[in-house]
Amino acid sequence: QEPLTASMLAAAPPQEQKQMLGERLYPLIHAMHPSLAGKITGMLLEIDNSELLLMLESPESLHSKIEEAVAVLQVHQM
């Protein structure tokens, strides 16, 4: 699968852009947290698209964001 680029995103309507980012993020998140993947992806999609693109290119920053999201979710669900 070719990497998602800013210009590919810009060519799509806003709602579609989140969908495209979600489709890329979900498998990566699912590999780390299968049971929470949908919720974590939903949370991360609230982040700016430009930042989400950077996270897709940087596994390290993606992983730290995922752990942040898991911590927030766990507090939220208490």
Partner: peptide, 22 residues
């Protein structure tokens, strides 16, 4: 009590209903 519907859940292949970029 918390808002159980947050965050919206993403499902692959299902059109995203969350907020678009502002």
């Amino acid at each position: 009590s918390s808002n159980a519907s947050w965050p919206p859940e993403f499902q692959p292949g299902v059109p995203w209903k969350g907020i678009p970029n502002i």
